[in-house]
Design a protein around this nucleic acid. Sequence first.
DNA 1: TTAACTGGAAAA
DNA 2: TTTCCAGTTAAC
Length: 664
Amino acid sequence: MLPGLRAAVADSKAKAAATRARKAADVEPAPTDPVARVLVDLPLAHLDRPFDYLVPVKDAHTAVPGARVKVRFAGQDVDGYVVERVAESDHPGRLAPLRRVVSAEPVLLPEVAALAAAVAERYAGSRADVLRLAVPPRHATTEAKPSPDPDGRVEIDAAAAAAAWAGHEPAAAFLAHLAAGGSPRAVWSAAPATDWPTALAHTAAHTHASGRGALLVVPDHRDLARVDDALTKVLGEGHHVTLRAEAGPAARYRDFLAVSRGRRRIVLGTRAAAFAPVHDLGLVVLWDDGDDLHSEPRAPYPHTREVLVLRAEQQQTALLLAGFGRSVEAQQLVRSGWAHEIAPPRNVLRARATVTIAESGEREHGARLPRAAYDAVRAGLADGPVLVQTPRSGYAPSLACERCRTPARCTHCTGPLQLAGAADPPYCRWCGERAADWSCAACGHRGLRAPVVGESRTAEELGRTFPGVPVLTSGGSQIRAEAPATPAIVVATPGAEPVVTGGGYAAVVLLDTWLPLGRVDLRAEEEALRRWFNAAALVRAGGRVIAVGAPEHAPLQALVRWDPAGFAEREAAQRAEAHLPPASRLATVTGDPGAVDDVVTLLDLPDGTEVLGPVPDGDQSRVVLRVPSAAGTALSRALGEVQRVRSARKLDAVRIQVDPVDLD
DNA sequence: TTAACTGGAAAA
DNA sequence: TTTCCAGTTAAC
């Protein structure tokens, strides 16, 4: 035998002996509850259940429920969470010991574990995937540091709360119910010119006064900043914490710990905060639930509204779905009696804003500003800023001929051309071919123009129409959070409207309302209206709103009447007729054609399921499944079961999305 | 990663 | 029928 080979054999023998020795040296189990039930962090659907491990005596007091641990799982070290400590296991075989307690910090509260299970079930995904959204990565240095002292009492300022909620019925009853420890559920459609961050802050204060915590979730970081300010003003310093996804791992974990340790019970954040481990949770609040930022882009693609509704039900908390507009789903909760409605009466609406339509036919000033809109801007500028909302003109960032504006296409494959960098020649988005010597197919011109975003061209036009007036823009990558209270024209794309510091716009003009209505998207009208409401609501009390468009469009009529509920009701009826959510639960299964076919045969579908497709989708295949919402749970369960069976059989993965936001 | 299991082939 | 072995599977 060669020396090297002999050494290798000796080595492997030594390893085998070590393994035997490890097994022989029985770890002494903890005296009480020596079994830890552990959720392992693995992507396999059929392993989405607790596994039992023996707790060594040295870990008796650190392997607490919620602690992160490492366990030997099929020969590999994997991460997991202890979900429970029990006296005995029903596992018939020998239990392996925990390999290591990563930290005794209980980062997974039982109620969050239960929420993750419910969310995973509803979206036919795994708990491990949900927990990755719910628990931030550990930061050891931060964990070693103390969290802030417990928050003190919060005084309710009844007068300030009443002022913030003025004009909304029955807001006073809702607040009183919160303060008394009750759990009311409401859908709130705010009147224009409402300082909603302050109003929401008062709901948190009232909940806190009942000895409970509150969780507020907003779509983006600009809303986060506004509500953060409002909470500080209403509650004072040191009563709430704002979870910031972009703050970096240390700050993120520090703030998470302040919550999980119960030191802060008023918590604000964006969608991941819906899982925040708030102690004694009494209220969950969601602002603008129609904003698609509330839809999580990572598996299992949960929607914050659904997460919070599940949480409110599981933990018996109050819930407030708030916004200027109203989603069809929120309306469904009102319609079914699950939630009450809080809304302004007609006379309040009339006093807050006058909304009119200017027909785009009658154009006098520039290409896009009819007479009535021009007058409104002019009148508004007399005593304050005017907001002009303009939809994005370019859908895709592709290039066009500088002279005739014909879209620039690749000479090889007719794909759209795109700019790689300022100095590089453009390239084709389809075939990647560089177009160094492009010339326009229509006019022969050799110059290309970058897409003009709506707001910059509109700003130029308005600057010429109203000489001497400052014109500010906000949109795309340059979003302005605030606008001055002095006369100025503020041109913004939808969702990028600056807020006027300490007041509102004298007038709001919505341009080209036909443009977003032309999208094929199922939610085009609902989404357009939501964005108009959000812009129009920035008007000051008594201000004017002008929408440029065709008065026969239903969403424009809803805007003029300021009737989000009526529009949502109409939309709900249409969706019910078309078997679309929320009257139906809908799921898509995407993947290899064979795999998708297999899933459809394997599925134990509830009675009355519609199977649409499969249809080819690129080199993949997609099938849409649809059931009345009463059978929704059964559909989700069946899909989850299929994932487990397929995962156990090591079959190709398919992507399942339950109630996807965008279905085209 | 690896112990337990499976099934098929060789040995008896 | 038993035994052996290689490949597969489940996984505490």
